[in-house]
Design a protein around this nucleic acid. Structure first.
Length: 459
RNA sequence: GAGGAUGUAGCUCAGUUGGUUAGAGCGCCAGAUUGUGGUUCUGGAGGUCGCGGGUUCGAGACCCGUCUUUCUCCCCA
């Protein structure tokens, strides 16, 4: 006999975890709804042709690929097996598990372009899979909550994303977080003014680590990546930004004066800041972070990342604007912007900060305890009556001692039990017991329903 | 994908330079109490020491492989 196990990086969720996860999911979902986003779902499986090449070279490696059904080796020659893994993969696998929700969404938009009212705002809450190496806060199967708007390049969308992030996290009880914002155009501008056009990719990757490894190591890495001493010298202003946002904007405008793209990026960000102010967002936790790059190659405008402060868990949300995501599927020129929240990481953050509310753990409101068949015949209609009033109620299915039944109520944290024995049947007065205080009172069935109904209304 | 750490009862962990039958607390089950739980007392069940090889008279301990979890790099939610 073998010990059962789940695949590396995947997990089961028990009832206690699920009640927390559902609370989390529901809170985020309601925020998305409130901002006018509509739900969609897409298959867990996508054709590899949809997924490949959308996440950079490394992304392709992180895709879970599915072996073709049937005799996948049919028609393969010896030469095929000798070929490199990438080419062989394409011959034996044509489907993969989705890596994120954005690319499937882009596919969906292209396939349904004639039916969608533009701008189209959708939210999508589904698991994604990455063949990554698992660590704390990093799983191979995890749930993302995405909200995207396509069909408009209005910066109002960026501002609303900022608002939704604040609203979601605050409704969950996460107060100490930072929404870092940058703009890809600024990174492009920087690469221009330092004389390294087209090199913003490697530049961004190095600069992204600034807060982690410090200026000297970043300079070192840039040298290794082939940046000239002159470029690195011109990069100096990068390390001297003001903590004050408006001052930093001014610095950026001076520095990027020679780059049209760069200045546009600054102007876009200023507009976002201004709009967030107009919405009246109180105590905005937004921070201009010029070092924020993010790996995904398809971002073209704003870039978002959210970090929960005080915990050692990676970013809990990320997103940005992409001008041409649907271009790969034959529909160019459609601009979109979106955000993705990582449920599993937010869960870990909340668990670590002990932010889950105590309530919500209890599943059943009342347990009907019967002592014999006669008691059960009184208990069953009571159960129906309770449930008809939307009170979650259950009976212990087996004929068991009172002790055992009360133990069961305790184990499930059921706050009330109704005891029905010969005495209760004779008088018609059932015993309602409060399991928290231990108090008992004799009440008629109707009175019990009424009392528990009021009790439930208070929750 | 590269390197390091980890794994003993359901849970948290002891286990001496390798030495007889691997322990504790909590939890679980039963009884004290055949209609009253969460307190107390008594008793009980539960371990292929992650898995597979090897060294040894003898391995939970040492060596190799493998899997899990975890840390750093990379990347990300």
């Amino acid at each position: 006999m073998q010990k059962p196990s789940v695949p590396r990086g995947t997990r089961d969720f028990g009832p206690e975890q699920m009640s927390k996860r559902l609370f989390l999911l529901e809170t985020i979902r309601q925020t998305f709804r409130r901002y006018g986003f509509q739900p969609i779902e897409t298959p867990a499986l996508e054709n590899l042709s949809v997924l490949m090449g959308k996440y950079g070279e490394e992304g392709d490696q992180l895709l879970f690929k599915i072996l073709n059904s049937g005799d996948f080796a049919n028609g393969l020659t010896q030469a095929d097996w000798q070929e490199n893994a990438r080419k062989l993969t394409l011959k034996i696998s044509e489907k993969g598990l989705r890596y994120d929700l954005t690319v499937p969404f882009a596919r969906y938009v292209v396939m349904n372009r004639h039916a969608l009212a533009m701008p189209f705002k959708r939210y999508q809450i589904q698991p994604v899979w990455r063949a990554d190496r698992p660590q704390k806060g990093r799983y191979r199967e995890f749930v993302q909550c995405d909200a995207d708007v396509v069909g408009t390049d209005s910066l109002l969308c960026e501002a609303e994303i900022v608002l939704m992030l604040h609203e979601s996290l605050r409704n969950l009880g996460i107060q100490d977080f930072t929404v870092k914002i940058n703009n890809r155009k600024i990174l492009t501008g920087i690469s221009e003014v330092v004389g390294a056009e087209g090199q913003e990719g490697p530049l961004a990757v190095a600069i992204d680590k600034l807060d982690k490894i410090g200026k000297e190591k970043v300079v070192e890495e840039l040298k290794q990546r082939g940046f000239s001493d002159e470029s690195i010298e011109k990069l100096e202003p990068m390390f001297q930004f003001s903590n004050e946002t408006q001052a930093a904007f001014a610095q950026l405008k001076t520095w990027l004066a020679g780059s049209e793209v760069g200045l546009k990026g600054v102007a876009e960000l200023e507009e976002v800041w201004s709009l967030v102010g107009q919405y009246g967002l109180a105590d905005a936790r937004i921070q201009l972070d010029v070092t924020l790059a993010r790996g995904l190659s398809y971002y073209t405008g704003a870039i978002f990342e959210v970090k929960a402060n005080g915990v050692q868990i990676g970013s809990i949300s990320g997103g940005g604007r992409y001008d041409n995501l649907t271009g790969a599927f034959g529909m160019p020129g459609l601009s979109g912007v979106g955000i993705s929240l990582g449920v599993d990481r937010i869960y870990d953050v909340m668990e670590e900060l002990k932010l889950f509310p105590e309530t919500g753990l209890q599943s059943t409101q009342v347990l009907v305890v019967h002592l014999d068949a006669e008691g059960r015949s009184v208990g069953l209609p009571l159960l129906s009556q309770l449930r008809a009033h939307n009170i979650s109620a259950e009976a212990y299915p087996d004929a068991a001692k009172v002790k055992k039944q009360l133990d069961y109520a305790n184990a499930k944290r059921i706050p009330y039990v109704v005891l029905i024995g010969s005495e209760e049947i004779q008088t018609g007065q059932l015993t309602l017991k409060n399991m928290v205080t231990g108090e008992q009172q004799k009440l008629a069935a109707d009175q019990i329903v009424e009392k528990l109904r009021q009790e439930a209304a208070l929750l």
